[in-house]
């Protein structure tokens, strides 16, 4: 009694606890000879130099960490608003370029709101923000089926503060890479 009868949820919830704090991405694997060999097409002569050479200290191309370096992963909104201004569109252009470079990737667009508002309204508002971003990405040529959305409303603030500076940071949409490119 009073325990989960759904084992799926039980395991899911444990996993949620583990991921809820957005841990930093795994450090990229150290480039090695075998690594470069695998990306070499077998039809090429063995003397052909590798086409893809990850930078020795940077993230692996097409990875979540690579996205964080090459794209602006978060756009910010005005109070109670969900429209994208020119700054936001510039930020999203960097996302679009990356998504076009790595067409096998998939993203989750998360909508967030500040704490000034009720839970329900802020979930709806966060969903609008996430959809604004998704619509822009789709309009710029990213396949719709590569993008899923979620809203956390006011319940997952980026900034734990309670002033206008924190609120303006918490009105955002975050693009979360959930399928990385295989390299």
């Amino acid at each position: 009694m009073r325990t989960f009868s759904l084992s799926l949820l039980a395991t899911a919830t444990i996993a949620l606890a583990a991921c809820a704090s957005n841990p930093p991405p795994e450090p990229p694997p150290t480039p090695s000879a075998s690594n470069t060999t695998t990306v070499t097409p077998p039809v090429q002569p063995p003397v052909q130099p590798p086409r893809v050479t990850p930078p020795p200290s940077g993230p692996l191309a097409g990875s979540k960490a690579d996205f964080a370096v090459k794209a602006t992963d978060r756009v910010y909104f005005d109070y109670d608003a969900y429209n994208l201004d020119s700054d936001d569109q510039r930020s999203l252009s960097s996302q679009i370029a990356w998504l076009k470079q790595f067409p096998s990737t998939r993203v989750e667009v998360q909508g967030h709101a500040d704490e000034r508002g009720t839970r329900d309204y802020n979930i709806a508002l966060g969903e609008r923000r996430a959809q604004s971003v998704k619509s822009f990405l789709v309009a710029q040529g990213i396949a719709e089926n590569r993008i899923q959305t979620i809203s956390f409303g006011k319940d997952k603030p980026l900034d734990p503060g309670h002033d206008e500076a924190a609120w303006s940071r918490n009105r955002n949409s975050y693009t979360n890479v959930i399928v990385e490119a295989i390299s």
Partner: peptide, 29 residues
């Protein structure tokens, strides 16, 4: 409602609605 990990895509989140019988402990999505 519960935010739970998307079983299809690790790192992504779903919001599920559950019906929970307190007497039996039975849950339903």
């Amino acid at each position: 409602g519960a935010y739970i990990p998307d079983p299809r895509y690790p790192g992504a989140t779903l919001l599920r609605t559950y019906l929970y019988d307190l007497a039996t402990g039975r849950q339903e999505i």
